[in-house]
Amino acid sequence: SQIDGVYDIRDDFSIGKSELRVYLNQEKAYQYGLTTFQIAQTLRTAIEGDKATTYREADEAIDVIVKYEEDALTNLAALDNLLIATPTGVIVPLKDVVNIVVEKGYADIHRFDGERAITVYASVDREKTTAFKVNQSLISAFADIESLYPGYQLDFRGVFDEITESFSELWKLFIVGLLLIYVVLGAQFRSFIQPVIILFAVPFGIIGAMVGLLVSNATLSIVAMFGIVALTGIVVNDSIVLIDFINRYRESGYNRWYAILKGGSVRLRPIILTSLTTIFGLIPMAIGLGGKSPIWMPMAYTIIFGLTFATTMTLFVMPALYAITTDLRGLVVKNPEARFQTVSDKDLLGDAIPADD
Protein backbone atom coordinates (compact mmCIF):
# COMPACT_ATOMS: atom_id res chain seq x y z
CA SER A 1 0.00 0.00 0.00
CA GLN A 2 1.07 3.57 -0.61
CA ILE A 3 2.55 5.42 2.38
CA ASP A 4 1.21 8.94 2.65
CA GLY A 5 3.97 11.50 2.11
CA VAL A 6 6.24 9.20 0.07
CA TYR A 7 6.66 10.02 -3.63
CA ASP A 8 9.07 9.70 -6.56
CA ILE A 9 9.63 5.98 -5.89
CA ARG A 10 12.14 4.40 -8.29
CA ASP A 11 14.75 1.64 -8.44
CA ASP A 12 17.87 0.70 -10.41
CA PHE A 13 16.51 -2.64 -11.69
CA SER A 14 16.07 -2.84 -15.48
CA ILE A 15 15.07 -5.74 -17.74
CA GLY A 16 17.55 -6.77 -20.42
CA LYS A 17 17.36 -8.97 -23.53
CA SER A 18 15.86 -12.47 -23.71
CA GLU A 19 18.21 -15.28 -22.74
CA LEU A 20 18.20 -19.02 -22.24
CA ARG A 21 18.25 -20.20 -18.64
CA VAL A 22 19.12 -23.78 -17.78
CA TYR A 23 17.51 -25.22 -14.63
CA LEU A 24 18.97 -28.50 -13.38
CA ASN A 25 16.67 -31.39 -12.47
CA GLN A 26 18.49 -32.57 -9.36
CA GLU A 27 16.71 -35.93 -9.13
CA LYS A 28 17.33 -36.97 -12.71
CA ALA A 29 20.91 -35.73 -12.67
CA TYR A 30 21.57 -37.73 -9.49
CA GLN A 31 20.15 -40.86 -11.07
CA TYR A 32 22.55 -40.54 -14.00
CA GLY A 33 25.46 -39.63 -11.74
CA LEU A 34 25.84 -36.18 -13.26
CA THR A 35 26.86 -33.05 -11.40
CA THR A 36 26.09 -29.40 -12.10
CA PHE A 37 29.70 -28.83 -13.16
CA GLN A 38 29.67 -31.72 -15.65
CA ILE A 39 26.47 -30.52 -17.32
CA ALA A 40 27.66 -26.90 -17.43
CA GLN A 41 31.01 -27.98 -18.89
CA THR A 42 29.26 -30.01 -21.60
CA LEU A 43 27.10 -27.04 -22.57
CA ARG A 44 30.08 -24.71 -22.63
CA THR A 45 32.10 -27.11 -24.78
CA ALA A 46 29.21 -27.57 -27.22
CA ILE A 47 28.61 -23.85 -27.70
CA GLU A 48 32.01 -22.25 -27.26
CA GLY A 49 34.25 -25.25 -27.80
CA ASP A 50 37.15 -26.59 -25.79
CA LYS A 51 40.88 -26.67 -26.35
CA ALA A 52 41.87 -30.20 -27.35
CA THR A 53 45.54 -29.69 -28.10
CA THR A 54 48.07 -27.21 -29.41
CA TYR A 55 49.51 -27.51 -32.90
CA ARG A 56 53.02 -26.14 -33.26
CA GLU A 57 54.61 -25.10 -36.51
CA ALA A 58 58.04 -23.52 -36.28
CA ASP A 59 57.74 -20.81 -33.61
CA GLU A 60 53.96 -20.54 -33.96
CA ALA A 61 51.54 -22.27 -31.56
CA ILE A 62 47.95 -22.83 -32.71
CA ASP A 63 45.22 -23.99 -30.32
CA VAL A 64 42.94 -26.74 -31.66
CA ILE A 65 39.34 -26.03 -30.56
CA VAL A 66 36.73 -28.80 -30.73
CA LYS A 67 33.07 -27.70 -30.90
CA TYR A 68 29.81 -28.24 -32.71
CA GLU A 69 29.25 -26.73 -36.11
CA GLU A 70 27.81 -23.22 -35.92
CA ASP A 71 24.48 -24.24 -37.52
CA ALA A 72 24.08 -27.35 -35.32
CA LEU A 73 22.67 -25.55 -32.27
CA THR A 74 20.53 -22.81 -33.78
CA ASN A 75 17.29 -23.39 -31.84
CA LEU A 76 15.97 -24.56 -28.50
CA ALA A 77 14.98 -28.00 -29.77
CA ALA A 78 18.51 -28.73 -30.94
CA LEU A 79 19.87 -27.71 -27.56
CA ASP A 80 17.34 -29.98 -25.80
CA ASN A 81 18.52 -32.94 -27.87
CA LEU A 82 22.19 -32.28 -27.16
CA LEU A 83 23.74 -35.57 -26.09
CA ILE A 84 25.68 -35.81 -22.85
CA ALA A 85 27.75 -38.76 -21.60
CA THR A 86 27.23 -40.01 -18.06
CA PRO A 87 30.07 -41.42 -15.89
CA THR A 88 28.76 -44.95 -16.61
CA GLY A 89 29.06 -44.42 -20.39
CA VAL A 90 25.34 -44.01 -21.07
CA ILE A 91 24.43 -41.27 -23.57
CA VAL A 92 21.32 -39.23 -22.65
CA PRO A 93 19.78 -36.11 -24.19
CA LEU A 94 20.22 -32.90 -22.26
CA LYS A 95 16.44 -32.44 -21.86
CA ASP A 96 16.34 -35.47 -19.57
CA VAL A 97 18.35 -33.73 -16.85
CA VAL A 98 17.63 -30.01 -17.35
CA ASN A 99 14.80 -27.63 -18.25
CA ILE A 100 15.75 -24.87 -20.67
CA VAL A 101 13.44 -21.83 -20.77
CA VAL A 102 13.54 -18.44 -22.44
CA GLU A 103 13.44 -15.59 -19.92
CA LYS A 104 14.30 -11.93 -19.77
CA GLY A 105 17.77 -11.21 -18.44
CA TYR A 106 19.21 -8.24 -16.54
CA ALA A 107 20.43 -5.13 -18.28
CA ASP A 108 22.80 -4.46 -15.36
CA ILE A 109 23.81 -6.35 -12.23
CA HIS A 110 24.44 -4.04 -9.30
CA ARG A 111 26.26 -5.10 -6.16
CA PHE A 112 26.29 -3.75 -2.63
CA ASP A 113 28.85 -4.98 -0.08
CA GLY A 114 29.84 -7.71 -2.53
CA GLU A 115 26.29 -9.08 -3.02
CA ARG A 116 23.71 -8.59 -5.73
CA ALA A 117 21.33 -5.79 -4.82
CA ILE A 118 18.42 -3.74 -6.09
CA THR A 119 18.31 -0.23 -4.69
CA VAL A 120 14.95 1.47 -4.20
CA TYR A 121 14.89 5.25 -3.88
CA ALA A 122 12.10 7.54 -2.67
CA SER A 123 11.53 11.09 -1.53
CA VAL A 124 9.66 12.07 1.64
CA ASP A 125 7.34 15.02 2.16
CA ARG A 126 8.47 16.27 5.59
CA GLU A 127 5.17 18.09 6.13
CA LYS A 128 3.32 14.73 6.15
CA THR A 129 5.84 12.28 7.57
CA THR A 130 9.52 11.68 8.25
CA ALA A 131 12.10 9.31 6.82
CA PHE A 132 12.35 7.58 10.19
CA LYS A 133 8.59 6.82 10.30
CA VAL A 134 8.61 5.59 6.70
CA ASN A 135 11.48 3.19 7.41
CA GLN A 136 9.81 1.97 10.59
CA SER A 137 6.67 1.18 8.54
CA LEU A 138 8.74 -0.70 5.96
CA ILE A 139 10.58 -2.66 8.65
CA SER A 140 7.24 -3.73 10.14
CA ALA A 141 5.78 -4.62 6.73
CA PHE A 142 8.79 -6.74 5.69
CA ALA A 143 9.67 -8.17 9.11
CA ASP A 144 9.40 -11.80 7.91
CA ILE A 145 10.93 -11.40 4.45
CA GLU A 146 14.06 -13.43 5.33
CA SER A 147 11.99 -16.40 6.52
CA LEU A 148 9.61 -16.25 3.53
CA TYR A 149 12.38 -15.72 0.96
CA PRO A 150 15.63 -17.30 2.16
CA GLY A 151 18.67 -15.54 0.77
CA TYR A 152 16.94 -12.17 0.52
CA GLN A 153 17.26 -9.34 3.01
CA LEU A 154 16.49 -5.64 3.33
CA ASP A 155 19.12 -3.06 4.18
CA PHE A 156 17.96 0.47 4.96
CA ARG A 157 20.33 3.30 4.10
CA GLY A 158 20.08 6.99 3.26
CA VAL A 159 18.68 9.29 5.97
CA PHE A 160 17.63 6.34 8.14
CA ASP A 161 21.16 4.92 8.10
CA GLU A 162 22.60 8.33 8.98
CA ILE A 163 20.16 8.65 11.90
CA THR A 164 21.03 5.17 13.19
CA GLU A 165 24.75 5.88 12.95
CA SER A 166 24.33 9.26 14.64
CA PHE A 167 22.37 7.67 17.49
CA SER A 168 25.12 5.12 18.11
CA GLU A 169 27.77 7.85 18.12
CA LEU A 170 25.69 10.07 20.42
CA TRP A 171 25.29 7.27 22.94
CA LYS A 172 29.04 6.81 22.98
CA LEU A 173 29.51 10.53 23.61
CA PHE A 174 26.80 10.37 26.28
CA ILE A 175 28.65 7.61 28.16
CA VAL A 176 31.99 9.43 27.83
CA GLY A 177 30.34 12.59 29.17
CA LEU A 178 28.99 10.70 32.19
CA LEU A 179 32.43 9.28 32.95
CA LEU A 180 34.02 12.73 32.73
CA ILE A 181 31.36 14.20 35.01
CA TYR A 182 31.97 11.38 37.50
CA VAL A 183 35.73 12.01 37.48
CA VAL A 184 35.29 15.75 38.05
CA LEU A 185 32.74 15.25 40.84
CA GLY A 186 34.89 12.58 42.47
CA ALA A 187 37.81 14.98 42.61
CA GLN A 188 35.59 17.79 43.91
CA PHE A 189 33.83 15.84 46.66
CA ARG A 190 36.69 13.43 47.42
CA SER A 191 34.26 10.55 47.36
CA PHE A 192 33.35 7.62 45.13
CA ILE A 193 29.73 7.44 46.34
CA GLN A 194 28.52 11.04 46.28
CA PRO A 195 29.13 11.49 42.51
CA VAL A 196 26.86 8.47 41.98
CA ILE A 197 24.15 10.18 44.06
CA ILE A 198 24.49 13.32 41.96
CA LEU A 199 24.39 11.35 38.68
CA PHE A 200 21.04 9.86 39.70
CA ALA A 201 19.60 13.12 38.38
CA VAL A 202 20.54 12.02 34.84
CA PRO A 203 18.01 9.12 34.53
CA PHE A 204 15.38 11.40 36.09
CA GLY A 205 16.11 13.95 33.38
CA ILE A 206 15.89 11.31 30.62
CA ILE A 207 12.51 10.12 31.95
CA GLY A 208 11.22 13.68 31.92
CA ALA A 209 12.58 14.20 28.39
CA MET A 210 10.73 11.13 27.11
CA VAL A 211 7.52 12.38 28.73
CA GLY A 212 8.06 15.75 27.04
CA LEU A 213 8.42 14.12 23.62
CA LEU A 214 5.30 12.05 24.28
CA VAL A 215 3.23 15.05 25.38
CA SER A 216 4.38 17.21 22.45
CA ASN A 217 3.93 14.31 19.98
CA ALA A 218 7.49 14.87 18.75
CA THR A 219 9.91 12.25 17.43
CA LEU A 220 13.22 11.27 19.00
CA SER A 221 15.28 13.08 16.38
CA ILE A 222 18.98 13.87 16.32
CA VAL A 223 18.31 17.36 17.68
CA ALA A 224 16.21 15.89 20.49
CA MET A 225 19.16 13.62 21.32
CA PHE A 226 21.37 16.70 21.44
CA GLY A 227 18.92 18.09 23.99
CA ILE A 228 19.20 14.94 26.12
CA VAL A 229 23.00 15.05 26.02
CA ALA A 230 22.94 18.73 27.00
CA LEU A 231 20.40 17.91 29.71
CA THR A 232 22.94 15.56 31.28
CA GLY A 233 25.17 18.49 32.17
CA ILE A 234 22.29 20.73 33.28
CA VAL A 235 20.38 18.46 35.67
CA VAL A 236 23.41 17.64 37.83
CA ASN A 237 23.92 21.29 38.79
CA ASP A 238 21.07 21.32 41.33
CA SER A 239 22.30 18.06 42.88
CA ILE A 240 25.84 19.42 43.14
CA VAL A 241 24.64 22.52 44.98
CA LEU A 242 22.44 20.50 47.35
CA ILE A 243 25.04 17.85 48.21
CA ASP A 244 27.76 20.49 48.62
CA PHE A 245 25.69 22.44 51.17
CA ILE A 246 24.84 19.28 53.11
CA ASN A 247 28.56 18.46 53.30
CA ARG A 248 29.36 21.98 54.47
CA TYR A 249 26.88 21.77 57.34
CA ARG A 250 28.23 18.39 58.39
CA GLU A 251 31.80 19.69 58.29
CA SER A 252 30.63 22.53 60.54
CA GLY A 253 29.77 19.96 63.19
CA TYR A 254 26.04 19.39 62.61
CA ASN A 255 24.66 15.86 62.61
CA ARG A 256 23.54 14.15 59.42
CA TRP A 257 19.78 14.73 59.68
CA TYR A 258 20.10 18.38 60.61
CA ALA A 259 22.55 18.94 57.74
CA ILE A 260 20.17 17.29 55.27
CA LEU A 261 17.14 19.29 56.43
CA LYS A 262 19.05 22.55 56.66
CA GLY A 263 20.79 22.10 53.30
CA GLY A 264 17.48 21.29 51.59
CA SER A 265 15.65 24.26 53.10
CA VAL A 266 18.44 26.77 52.41
CA ARG A 267 18.98 25.69 48.79
CA LEU A 268 15.30 25.16 47.94
CA ARG A 269 14.73 28.64 46.49
CA PRO A 270 18.03 28.88 44.53
CA ILE A 271 17.50 25.43 43.01
CA ILE A 272 13.95 26.24 41.90
CA LEU A 273 14.90 29.67 40.55
CA THR A 274 17.89 28.27 38.63
CA SER A 275 15.69 25.69 36.93
CA LEU A 276 12.88 28.17 36.23
CA THR A 277 15.19 30.62 34.48
CA THR A 278 16.33 27.86 32.09
CA ILE A 279 12.77 26.61 31.56
CA PHE A 280 11.32 30.08 30.89
CA GLY A 281 14.16 30.79 28.49
CA LEU A 282 13.25 27.73 26.40
CA ILE A 283 9.46 28.17 26.43
CA PRO A 284 9.44 30.55 23.41
CA MET A 285 11.32 27.95 21.36
CA ALA A 286 9.00 25.18 22.52
CA ILE A 287 5.70 26.95 21.73
CA GLY A 288 7.07 28.54 18.57
CA LEU A 289 7.00 32.24 19.35
CA GLY A 290 8.32 34.05 16.30
CA GLY A 291 7.83 30.96 14.12
CA LYS A 292 7.56 27.25 14.83
CA SER A 293 10.57 25.09 14.07
CA PRO A 294 9.90 21.32 13.87
CA ILE A 295 13.67 20.79 14.17
CA TRP A 296 14.39 22.73 17.37
CA MET A 297 11.08 22.32 19.20
CA PRO A 298 11.79 18.68 20.29
CA MET A 299 15.08 19.78 21.87
CA ALA A 300 13.29 22.50 23.83
CA TYR A 301 10.66 20.04 25.07
CA THR A 302 13.28 17.49 26.15
CA ILE A 303 15.17 20.08 28.23
CA ILE A 304 12.04 21.68 29.73
CA PHE A 305 10.34 18.46 30.84
CA GLY A 306 13.62 16.75 31.72
CA LEU A 307 14.79 19.62 33.89
CA THR A 308 11.38 19.96 35.57
CA PHE A 309 11.22 16.30 36.52
CA ALA A 310 14.89 16.09 37.52
CA THR A 311 14.61 19.21 39.73
CA THR A 312 11.54 17.83 41.50
CA MET A 313 13.22 14.49 42.11
CA THR A 314 16.42 16.23 43.24
CA LEU A 315 14.59 17.98 46.07
CA PHE A 316 12.89 14.80 47.29
CA VAL A 317 15.09 11.84 46.29
CA MET A 318 18.65 13.19 46.65
CA PRO A 319 18.42 13.84 50.42
CA ALA A 320 17.02 10.32 50.91
CA LEU A 321 19.80 8.81 48.80
CA TYR A 322 22.36 10.79 50.78
CA ALA A 323 21.05 9.35 54.05
CA ILE A 324 20.86 5.81 52.65
CA THR A 325 24.43 5.85 51.30
CA THR A 326 25.66 7.18 54.65
CA ASP A 327 24.05 4.20 56.40
CA LEU A 328 25.52 1.79 53.86
CA ARG A 329 28.94 3.36 54.27
CA GLY A 330 28.69 2.67 57.98
CA LEU A 331 28.51 -1.05 57.23
CA VAL A 332 31.84 -0.92 55.42
CA VAL A 333 33.83 1.85 57.12
CA LYS A 334 34.55 1.68 60.83
CA ASN A 335 34.05 5.40 61.45
CA PRO A 336 32.01 6.86 58.55
CA GLU A 337 31.63 10.24 60.31
CA ALA A 338 35.38 10.84 60.71
CA ARG A 339 35.51 12.95 57.59
CA PHE A 340 32.97 15.43 58.96
CA GLN A 341 34.19 15.75 62.54
CA THR A 342 35.26 19.26 63.38
CA VAL A 343 38.80 19.79 64.58
CA SER A 344 39.34 22.13 67.53
CA ASP A 345 42.25 24.58 67.80
CA LYS A 346 43.68 22.49 70.61
CA ASP A 347 43.71 19.34 68.47
CA LEU A 348 45.19 21.28 65.58
CA LEU A 349 47.95 23.19 67.44
CA GLY A 350 48.53 20.89 70.37
CA ASP A 351 48.97 22.00 74.02
CA ALA A 352 50.49 25.45 74.42
CA ILE A 353 54.10 25.36 75.71
CA PRO A 354 55.32 28.57 77.37
CA ALA A 355 58.46 30.00 75.86
CA ASP A 356 61.62 30.06 77.92
CA ASP A 357 62.53 33.42 79.33
Rank of each mutant, 00 (worst) to 15 (best):
S140N: 15
I207Y: 06
G186H: 05
A259K: 02
G212H: 06
V98F: 02
N81F: 08
E146C: 02
L214S: 13
L273P: 09
G16K: 06
A286F: 01
G114H: 00
E19L: 12
L20H: 03
Y23A: 13
A209L: 05
R116D: 03
N135L: 05
D327R: 10
P270E: 02
G186R: 01
I240P: 04
Y301W: 13
T86P: 04
G186Q: 04
K28F: 08
G290V: 04
L213D: 00
T88M: 11
T36I: 15
L214A: 14
L213H: 00
A58R: 14
P203C: 01
N247T: 06
R248T: 10
I65R: 07
L178T: 06
F280K: 00
V215W: 06
A52F: 10
G233D: 04
G264N: 07
Y254K: 12
A310C: 04
G227R: 00
L289N: 09
I287G: 03
H110G: 07
E169D: 14
Q31L: 14
R116E: 10
L154R: 04
I118K: 01
L289M: 13
L213Q: 00
K172W: 10
P319T: 08
V236C: 04
R267K: 08
K133Y: 10
S191Y: 06
L321S: 05
L331I: 12
R269D: 01
L331H: 15
T36E: 15
A259Y: 05
L214I: 09
N81K: 12
F204S: 10
G291E: 02
I303N: 02
P195S: 05
V202H: 00
A320D: 11
R10I: 09
Y152C: 03
L268P: 05
T274R: 08
Y23W: 12
R116M: 10
A320I: 15
G306W: 01
D96L: 12
F200M: 14
E69P: 10
A323W: 03
T45D: 15
A122P: 05
E127Q: 15
A131R: 02
A117R: 06
I324L: 15
L180Y: 04
Q188Y: 12
S239E: 02
P336F: 07
N335Y: 11
G227I: 00
A61F: 13
F280G: 03
A320Q: 15
R10A: 14
L178F: 05
W296M: 11
S1Y: 06
I303V: 12
I240Q: 07
T35L: 04
N75G: 12
D347N: 10
D11I: 08
P203D: 00
R267L: 03
D357E: 14
A46E: 00
T274I: 09
I3M: 07
S293T: 02
L20D: 02
G290H: 04
P270Q: 09
G16Y: 02
F340E: 02
I295W: 01
L82A: 02
T278N: 14
L282E: 00
F340L: 07
E251G: 07
I222C: 01
L242V: 12
Y30Q: 15
V102G: 06
I139M: 13
